[in-house]
Design a protein around this nucleic acid. Structure first.
Length: 103
DNA sequence: TCCTTGACGGAGA
DNA sequence: ATCTCCGCCAAGG
């Protein structure tokens, strides 16, 4: 019924401002997909590496990057966020009270 | 067609 | 804070 879900997700993702982050669940909501947070994850997974979408601004509800630390994508996402001024605590978590995007 | 698998999340215990 | 147990939904085997 929702083969157009990816488009809705891309559209919502494009609105996330520089220096801010959103959670998978939040993005699902913004895209009108209810609680389909997992769908957002598997959709982002399919993005080409040269995508100009800010996929790195999407983290999980605990403020952490959803990749194992030994996964190459972890550092890739981390450095991109740091470059935008998004800070990480000693626990490897982003302070959502400060960096979560509130539309 | 049925079953499993996820870049997930929230409620309980 | 940690661990389970469900809900969600598209994809692939």
């Amino acid at each position: 019924m929702n083969a157009a879900a990816p488009e809705a997700i891309y559209q919502a993702l494009q609105q996330v401002p520089h220096g801010k982050v959103v959670t998978y669940g939040q993005l699902a909501r913004l895209a009108g997909l209810g609680r389909a947070a997992r769908l957002v994850g598997s959709t982002l997974r399919k993005l080409p590496k040269d995508s100009r979408l800010p996929w790195y601004r999407v983290i999980n509800a605990q403020g952490k990057i959803s990749f194992p630390e030994d996964h190459p994508g972890y550092q890739r996402q981390r450095s991109r966020l740091l470059k935008e001024g998004v800070c990480f605590g000693n626990n490897g978590k982003v302070d959502l009270k400060v960096f979560l995007w509130r539309p």
